[in-house]
């Protein structure tokens, strides 16, 4: 499988590298002392996502009930929230999902990114839905990306993603359009 010759050729060419040798720097960025939730909320607003801070699961269940009443296709992976669709065999069968409801593992205040890692779901679940809903424990918000990497354990990770807001593009004359190929909206529910 691996073509040893090209690997060897590349590695041996690297022996002649003249790149100036640098030691790995110590990454030691002090955390800005500020309340995390307001900052997280502000970041989410910047990326056109909505944060629901109060009444967590109740508020979410109410919202989902409305969505179901409006005949939306809802798939939930959050305990205590029931949608109307089961996890299908093939990821392609999720193409008509209106709402995916997923648990987030960790939120980052500085940029609104939420780490989503869900081995029991198809990987496309967070992307193929028209709209995305993520729940996040309010204890699981950290200040910045350095903290996030420290807190997360990637040893068992197969696939995971930081999601910051709905998908967007500005490829036509720099005009921001929310809703490119991934979800067109994002709501985040804080739970206790």
């Amino acid at each position: 499988m691996t073509n040893m010759t090209s690997k060897d050729a590349i590695l041996s060419a690297l022996q002649n590298s003249a790149a100036k040798v640098k030691a790995m720097p110590e990454i030691n960025i002090p955390v800005i002392n500020e309340p995390l939730i307001p900052r997280f909320e502000q970041s989410l607003a910047t990326v056109t996502a909505t944060l629901i801070k109060e009444d967590g699961l109740n508020a979410l269940n109410q919202h989902v009930a409305e969505l179901l009443a409006q005949k939306n296709q809802v798939m939930s992976f959050v305990d205590g929230v029931q949608g109307n669709r089961e996890n299908p065999e093939l990821p392609h069968q999720m193409q008509d999902i209106d709402y995916s409801v997923l648990p987030g593992k960790l939120g980052v205040a500085e940029n609104g990114a939420i780490w989503v890692e869900l081995p029991q779901a198809h990987r496309v679940t967070a992307f193929i839905c028209e709209n995305l809903i993520i729940t996040l424990s309010r204890e699981k918000i950290v200040a910045n990306m350095h903290q996030a990497m420290k807190q997360l354990d990637f040893s068992q990770t197969q696939f995971g993603t930081f999601i910051s807001g709905p998908s967007k593009t500005a490829d036509i004359e720099q005009a921001l359009v929310v809703g490119a190929h991934g979800a067109c909206s994002l709501r985040v529910y804080l739970i206790d």
Partner: peptide, 14 residues
């Protein structure tokens, strides 16, 4: 932007 919308880490085949 604060960060790209998606920063995905692929560590294994599906």
């Amino acid at each position: 932007q604060l960060i790209t919308t998606y920063s995905s880490c692929y560590k294994a085949p599906k």
